[in-house]
Design a protein around this nucleic acid. Structure first.
Length: 590
RNA sequence: CGGGGCGUAGCGCAGCCUGGUAGCGCAUCUGCUUUGGGAGCAGAGGGCCGGGGGUUCGAAUCCCUCCGCCCCGACCA
């Protein structure tokens, strides 16, 4: 039995000024954590209890599909040099040297170590599949730690790794994780969505992120509940409503129009009396590309989109197979597009044949495909073209989806004619499952014998869950709902205690006895109970109980004389009188 | 790494511009009263004003420098 009077729960009346996001303020004010440095936190009693609730759930679900290991956090450089990541990890890796001068790093992820075990121990396909997981502290020298526990330099991660003999096996391991993750996040009380993620340049074949919508999040995602569509904005598409094309003027061929001072999309639309969607917008970039040898070069890229659309730079980067983008400066615009910003257009440009060729890469967004009689810049100050038809009047290096999907557009998988508006919002990533492929098995030389006695590389998957992010997301979620003026509370499954029994006046022997008895009863019934036996005024105890986010409170007060206590349910904001001997049953039913 | 802000008691802040050796609220401790939503009165303790250097008779205050933290951006297997 935990008695508040004996515990260290340093609640704060006011949040330290460093804290901005709701979860950060909560964690500090409720006495869950204290900060030691940028992105470095100590977990106090309540925080640690919550973390343990979370890891217990994670463990329980993971044990159904895999085996728990505990790998070192201190890792020799050698392994990372073998995988090639000693150099590619760059600044995000904490590095150190031992007394002999040997290089080491602090683990930020454990593909290398797991694969090292696999290569040394796994010999036969008969040993596969394997799913190995751990719950370990990870270290990442984040350029900018922020938002309390949301982005930190030291954090807990459940990471697992699967080894299979073939793609089918990997698919199964991946699906097992998918299901386990859904079970974990559901049990943790989170409203989450699994989104298609950009698997990056590493060539992973499939990847899903588990996200929780919250303003504190750092990613943008698009989803629609009805169709089940969900994707990171870097990957999201949408079905566009049809746009009426303009009727051609004159002979129907591109016609040069004098448009003095008309540069912005809105001005062009107004000048021609058209919709922005009937205009072509140009955004010009320089893209850094690297060849196989790792040599880098900057190539010019002109991106063309519907006037009312915006470029998704991740998509564009993927299309041109580049590593970095920056917008063109004036000189570069003059050199490659012969026109000033505001008057850029695709007509008459010498587009490279393929993205690997030299010269200007012209990338046209798929939404322009098949459109007719559009307006665009003429690459000449104060002039535009009308009657421009993609394909007839200009060519391109690549036609691809490079635009951002917008809020309210229909999900791409919605049946024709069915409205399925996308919800687009910020979200925090709480988990990620990823089909890795052969990258690490290859680099580190892991091999097993298959049914035919031939050496084969095991195919891998890796899967992560941010433990603290579950806590953070749950708090943000509760704060966002904003239904309780007394602040956020935690889902019962991950709250440090399920119930707090508040004795309104401990100097009243009868109340004290009743509270103690009730707390013991509830504990015997299997609940996690905190007994507030402090000699404080009732108001203080109510405020504290709410502040620390315990989802249920039982007030032991005057009504005890009649055999009743009050049960306050934070989730519904309701207070009910319940007979003393019926409390356990009542709480179970909630 | 670029831009901005901040650092004064445990927390929130004022004082700095215009130099004279530190103050308010909350919290803490003692006593009395109070006891269902952060009580009242009386009293008390607590600060190397982030560090170092400089200017000055004198620096929280002005100047230089370093450190730390927060926010925006860049970055983020």
């Amino acid at each position: 039995m935990h008695r508040w009077s004996k515990l260290f729960i340093p609640t704060l009346r006011e949040a330290p000024s460093d804290a901005e996001v709701a979860s950060h303020k909560f964690l500090l004010r409720a006495g869950y954590v204290r900060q030691l440095g940028a992105g470095i936190y100590s977990y106090l009693f309540l925080g640690q209890r919550s973390i343990q609730k979370i890891t217990a759930i994670v463990r329980e679900e993971m044990d159904r599909i895999g085996q728990e290991f505990l790998l070192p956090a201190l890792l020799p450089a050698d392994l990372w040099q073998q995988s090639g990541r000693w150099t590619t990890m760059g600044q995000n890796m904490f590095r150190l040297q031992d007394r002999k001068g040997a290089d080491l790093c602090l683990g930020m992820t454990h593909e290398e170590v797991m694969t090292d075990i696999a290569r040394k121990e796994l010999r036969s396909y008969k040993q596969l599949p394997q799913i190995w997981y751990q719950i370990q502290t990870k270290f990442r020298d984040e350029p900018r730690p922020k938002a309390g526990l949301l982005r930190v330099r030291q954090f807990l991660m459940k990471d697992s790794y699967s080894f299979d003999i073939d793609q089918d096996g990997l698919d199964r391991s991946y699906n097992l994780h998918d299901a386990a993750y859904c079970a974990i996040f559901t049990r943790c009380g989170l409203e989450f969505v699994a989104v298609e993620a950009d698997s990056g340049a590493m060539g992973g074949s499939q990847s899903q992120e588990f996200m929780v919508y919250t303003e504190a999040g750092e990613d943008l995602i698009a989803s629609n509940v009805e169709t089940g569509y969900a994707a990171n904005i870097e990957k999201a598409t949408s079905r566009l409503a049809p746009i009426d094309d303009l009727q051609p003027t004159g002979d129907g061929q591109p016609e040069l129009v004098h448009t003095p001072g008309v540069a912005a999309i809105a001005d062009v639309a107004a000048f021609f009396g058209i919709l922005p969607a009937q205009d072509i917008k140009c955004v010009a970039y320089m893209a850094e590309v690297r060849d196989a040898a790792g040599k880098s070069a900057w190539k010019p890229v002109a991106a063309f989109l519907r006037g009312d659309h915006s470029v998704n730079e991740t998509k564009l980067l993927g299309t041109v197979q580049g590593v970095e983008l920056r917008t063109m400066n004036g000189d570069e615009l003059a050199q490659w597009l012969q026109g000033p910003a505001g008057y850029l257009g695709p007509v008459g440009l010498a587009a490279a044949k393929t993205i690997t060729d030299a010269g200007l890469l012209v990338v046209v967004d798929s939404a322009l495909e098949g459109r007719r009689n559009l307006v665009c810049g003429a690459n000449k100050l104060d002039y535009h073209f009308r009657n421009v038809c993609p394909g007839r009047d200009f060519d391109w290096t690549a036609l691809a989806d490079i635009r951002n999907a917008n809020e309210g557009e229909d999900a791409p998988n919605a049946p024709e004619g069915v409205a399925a508006p996308l919800r687009i919002g910020k979200a925090v990533e709480i988990g990620h499952i990823f089909k890795l492929g052969y990258r690490y098995a290859e680099a580190l030389g892991a091999r097993v014998l298959d049914q035919n006695g031939k050496e084969k590389m095991p195919i891998m998957g890796c899967y992560g869950i941010g433990i603290e992010r579950i806590l953070t997301a749950a708090i943000e979620q509760s704060a966002t709902r904003g239904t309780d003026p007394n602040g956020p509370w935690l889902p019962r499954s991950i709250a440090p205690f399920e119930v707090v029994v508040t004795i309104t006046n401990v100097r009243d022997e009868a109340l004290l006895a009743a509270g103690e008895h009730l707390a013991n009863q509830l504990e015997a019934a299997g609940f996690d109970v905190l007994l507030d036996d402090r000699d404080e005024r009732a108001g203080v105890k109510f405020k504290d109980a709410d502040l620390v986010g315990i989802p249920l409170r039982i007030n032991v007060g005057k009504k005890v004389a009649d055999g009743f206590v009050e049960v306050v349910d934070r989730a519904t904001g309701t207070t009910q009188d319940v007979a003393l001997d019926a409390v356990a049953a009542h709480v179970s039913a909630l």
